[in-house]
């Protein structure tokens, strides 16, 4: 339990008859970078808001740093959060916005705001009001605000929204640095799954409020492994050929496609054998599932995305 930073048990939030979050049970361990994946309206933000105390759960339990109930509420100050768009005072500078949060947390360290600004790449913001900030700068300041007080758990909801590729890379590096050097546990949601896969150590996939899949980075890598993808006209005949060649791990994914997950170096032999057996091939190539495809498969296909 000591090792678990965040744990929820059947956490539910209902709005009328609609279950925004439906009996979500998950654990985030110390040092994890937890990738929280889900479509728009899947319940990611509501879940994060409940953990941060912005939204009251309808039922279920939240445990923070091994404590529940009133004890866990007192530990919320150890969470830094950026939920949805960053909340900023538009007529103030970045440093003023940071100073306010520092005051709220009782931090009076000189140069602390500058340190945070430097960490999120806003050292040059100067006296510019946040109203004049670009979307990316606002997002970075939002992350900076979440970092005030050096939280043990950082919750980032779509933190790379609106960032350019360089900004995305900087956020990625910042999260990795905080995780590796300061041991900060991070829960991060993002639509850019490819980007998430570069940093997350474990994943939770949420759909229609329910946590439908939990898996580690290695498990996801195994799911998205390389394979030979064969487009053909007679899959039944092809299966017999593959069986005859001693290929055991394959899957007929639709009426014109077979995916072979082993002996990837034998694609040439498979090609010849299938042609000799009278199977008409449209294409044969080595491919790999990306996380996005896997996500779409798990959540019910591309038509729902």
């Amino acid at each position: 339990m000591e090792n678990t930073v965040l744990s929820t048990n059947c956490l539910t939030k209902k709005y009328g008859s609609h279950n925004a979050v439906d009996s979500v049970t998950l654990n985030v361990k110390k040092g994890d970078i937890y990738g929280f994946i889900g479509k728009n309206g899947a319940g990611k933000t509501t879940f994060m808001k409940m953990v941060c105390g912005m939204v009251k759960p309808t039922s279920g339990e939240i445990s923070l740093f091994g404590r529940t109930g009133a004890e866990s509420e007192a530990l919320r100050s150890r969470i830094g959060a950026l939920i949805e768009a960053p909340g900023l005072f538009a007529n103030m500078t970045a440093a003023d916005n940071l100073n306010m949060k520092m005051l709220a947390l009782g931090i009076h360290k000189k140069g602390y705001a500058e340190e945070i600004l430097s960490l999120v790449g806003l050292s040059d913001a100067g006296k510019k009001k946040t109203a004049d900030f670009s979307m990316g700068m606002k997002q970075r300041l939002g992350i900076g605000l979440a970092l005030v007080g050096e939280p043990d758990l950082l919750m980032l909801d779509e933190p790379i929204n609106g960032l350019d590729p360089q900004g995305i890379a900087e956020v990625r590096e910042t999260v990795l640095t905080l995780n590796r050097e300061r041991g900060m546990t991070v829960m991060i949601s993002s639509h850019i799954l490819e980007e998430l896969s570069k940093i997350a150590t474990c994943y939770g996939i949420i759909d229609k409020g329910r946590l439908i899949k939990k898996l580690t980075k290695d498990e996801l890598a195994a799911q998205c492994k390389e394979h030979i993808e064969i487009k053909l006209d007679l899959p039944e005949k092809a299966c017999a050929v593959l069986d005859g060649m001693g290929v055991g791990s394959y899957k007929v994914t639709d009426k014109n496609t077979i995916c072979v997950y082993e002996q990837l170096d034998r694609s040439g032999e498979i090609n010849i054998a299938l042609i000799q057996a009278g199977v008409k091939l449209n294409s044969i190539f080595v491919a790999s599932d990306d996380i996005e495809k896997y996500f779409l498969d798990v959540t019910g296909g591309a038509e729902n995305a």
């Binding site: 941060c52 105390g53 912005m54 509420e73 007192a74 919320r76 100050s77 969470i79 830094g80 959060a81 939920i83 949805e84 768009a85 960053p86 909340g87 900023l88 005072f89 538009a90 916005n97 306010m100 949060k101 709220a104 947390l105 605000l145 979440a146 007080g149 939280p151």
Partner: peptide, 19 residues
């Protein structure tokens, strides 16, 4: 309700023991 309107309250809610 300035901090509610601009969303700054989201930065504070974790920092406050009591809302």
């Amino acid at each position: 309700v300035a901090e509610f309107k601009n969303g700054y309250v989201k930065n504070l809610v974790c920092a406050m023991k009591k809302r």
